[in-house]
Design a binder for these strands. Structure first.
Length: 186
DNA sequence: TACTTCACATTTT
DNA sequence: AAAATGTGAAGTA
């Protein structure tokens, strides 16, 4: 296969994280310690990353999950995204740092993609942003977990248990107060 | 404050 | 064709 997978062990609700790395950067993330059997066709033809970079990505992600890293130095391979999705995700990646959050509506406005949408229909933009987050191929690195609903947590992909992951990540970053069952990244 | 209803584009069943 | 979706804002009690 053409991509290198950086697998990282992770605490509690995650279990593990795998990152697909191409020569351009991190292209996809899966919430499992074992890389998926199949990869998007786009990645199968992408130029592979050298072992050096793959190791770098694995190390930084590991440090982040351990609470010892706040920013990722490696670039993101946006080839799996397109159109408005790419615009929104890039806006998020650029504007929302560690320990910060934005609401779906704010991200929609900040990305500039929905400027033409009348104020009275902001909900539509917010919902579409939600869709984009849910289909974000580079979760974690593009911090889709830092996007919350205007009144609370909002949802998270990965089905039912997904929200648990979101909570864990936000607690890790100090956005949420630790809950009673919070055991920390270690 | 808490709960209900509406707005509506895509995607999945 | 029908239902659900990572929302937001306004209206009701």
């Amino acid at each position: 296969m053409a991509v290198s997978w950086a697998s990282v062990a992770a605490p509690e609700p995650l279990g593990g994280v795998s990152v697909a790395v191409t020569a351009a950067g991190a292209a996809a993330v899966a919430f499992s310690a074992q890389p998926p059997d199949e990869v998007p066709a786009r990645l199968a033809t992408a130029p592979p990353a050298d072992a050096q970079r793959t190791a770098l990505v694995a190390r930084q992600v590991g440090e982040y999950l351990a609470g010892r890293r706040r920013v990722f130095d490696f670039p993101v391979d946006w080839s799996l995204t397109s159109g408005p999705q790419r615009t929104v995700l890039q806006a998020l990646h650029r504007a929302v740092g560690y320990g910060r959050t934005v609401t779906y509506g704010e991200l929609a406005a900040g990305s500039g993609v929905y400027d033409a949408v009348p104020t009275g229909e902001r909900w539509a933009a917010a919902r579409e942003v939600g869709q984009i987050m849910g289909s974000n191929p580079v979760a974690l690195i593009v911090p889709c977990h830092r996007v919350v609903a205007s009144d609370g947590l909002g949802g998270y992909g990965g089905g039912y248990g997904g929200v648990e992951v979101k909570r864990w990540l936000l607690t890790l970053e100090g956005v949420l107060a630790p809950t009673l069952d919070w055991s920390g990244p270690a």
